[in-house]
Design a protein around this nucleic acid. Sequence first.
DNA 1: CTGAAAGCGCTTACAG
DNA 2: CTGAAAGCGCTTACAG
Lengths: 331, 331
Amino acid sequence: MRATVRDVAALAGVSPKTVSNVLNGTFPVTPETRAKVEQAMAALDYVPNLSARGLRNGRTGMIAVALPDLRMPYSGEMLHHFVEAAAERGLHVQIEETGTTSERESELMSRARAQLVDGLILNPVLLETTAVQRGVALPPVVLIGEVDQPIVDHVWIDNVAASREITELLISEGHRRIAIVGAGPMASAQLRLSGYRKALRSAGIKRDPDLEIPCTDWHADTAGESFTEFLDHHDPPDAVVGMTDTLALGVLNALYRRGLSVPEDVSVVGYDNIADAATAVPPLTTIDFDKQQFAETAITVLTERIADRDRPIMSVTLPHRIVRRSSTRRR
Amino acid sequence: MRATVRDVAALAGVSPKTVSNVLNGTFPVTPETRAKVEQAMAALDYVPNLSARGLRNGRTGMIAVALPDLRMPYSGEMLHHFVEAAAERGLHVQIEETGTTSERESELMSRARAQLVDGLILNPVLLETTAVQRGVALPPVVLIGEVDQPIVDHVWIDNVAASREITELLISEGHRRIAIVGAGPMASAQLRLSGYRKALRSAGIKRDPDLEIPCTDWHADTAGESFTEFLDHHDPPDAVVGMTDTLALGVLNALYRRGLSVPEDVSVVGYDNIADAATAVPPLTTIDFDKQQFAETAITVLTERIADRDRPIMSVTLPHRIVRRSSTRRR
DNA sequence: CTGAAAGCGCTTACAG
DNA sequence: CTGAAAGCGCTTACAG
């Protein structure tokens, strides 16, 4: 059967403790002993049992990352950076999908508490998330994205500001009738809508509820349908703010199908700067932030939390910027 | 500290065995006993320790899915279905990124053998994958995608046929000078190139090596750059086959930047039918397959392999079809 | 239907 | 620098 430390120790003529020392470097081992042990491990094709190590150490070297919807290209990009940042610290990542309800979030918490993962990076969907509650034993968690929860660590970019800035860019270019696509109950939607409204208000533009176009999910095809329906009943707006790049891509497609040109007839902007934004037709002006830095920050905050459960709660706001491409023009 | 089965048993006035019976349903328990145990678990906020269970049972309830590049929208879509299919079977998924070399693959194998995961779904990058070798103790593995490896289970769609068919569609519409973007050493690239060549050959079209445009990675921007460089030195082709939708999207963008219209000037097709293909400008004709079915099949094959290490090796080929949209036209 | 004991494979005090 | 023992928390034969 499978070789264990005992087997390795026996073959190398040392004690299990010595094998462990070779493996973990807790205590120095003479070069000769090390060589003997390593030979024995190779000969027996020894692989340490991580469940046993996890039971003993209370650490598994695995963290969970929970995102609402893995199908969004945004999720894949973030995941890439999470996996890379985790790997740099010798951590592996378990992936969970929370969907658009918060039910699964509490389940995840208890799974994290079941100690198969050392901690959890969670992108909560709703503002009133019930999963994170005072009084319940929490595993190490860092919230990413849009929820400001004063009782756990938090890494995000300022959605309200970003959304406001990109709307202001549109206004400064002379757009007045500006639609926004993606309105809904999700936390991100609320914050981004709020930024949009602030921009309008401070420019003295009266907000028109019809221009706040809801979307049942955040997929491009849904956005396209919602926006097409809008076009069925209204004149085209001067500009459209997609709450995400994926939504903006759906709007681009809907406009194309209607024979409307971007940016000649309508300007369009997105949010997130996913890879597809740069190669869209036309390339999309959008909100950019450093996704690698984001992932690394979240993982650092989490590992620090794992190491010290009692450190003060942190909230980190990362910078964002507008990247201008060719999907808007002055009116 | 954390409650254990012993604590629960003590509080409920039963033995640990009974708690285990309640938890796992191995033996029937009277309703009263069950109620007492459940109350005790709730009172102590008991969560079973999965590492301990994993050590004892030799199963962790976790599988690993290893994909070359999580940034590709294709990866996110597949991951979504893997996570869903796994969840249906009570399994969680650990995600790994293999990159474009096969180094990490062997590392993954040994991690799987370290038993923190019960099995591994691996999308190998290169045809001559060294990680899967006879004579080495293998964990339960199913290969997905393009590598035909007779010594482990395998789920795929017929890349050569699919690529050939979509090229033939182009030929049947009167295209003659057909480029393909994405050539490279990766297994998928080789197979898809081979299908493309077969289609040309059986139509009596001489293949032109210049039209087989290489791409160092499979990202849209890279594809756009490679194709732009091609345009710098050659006349535009009649049509372009993107080896993936993401590559085709990059080509669409490159064409747009050059002021060329699709499909008026050049036809473009993709492969994979990712969500973005349907909302591209213009919507992309591509190769579709049922990704949910694919993921479910792979997970089923894996769980069966986990349950019976000695069953015969399986290779499952799933169907594909062409979905026609508006990115091509008859010439 | 329930209890007491053993053991999964590892690592960490505790001795030497 | 190394050895023998104990224990992480669970579940499974083994008895009753």
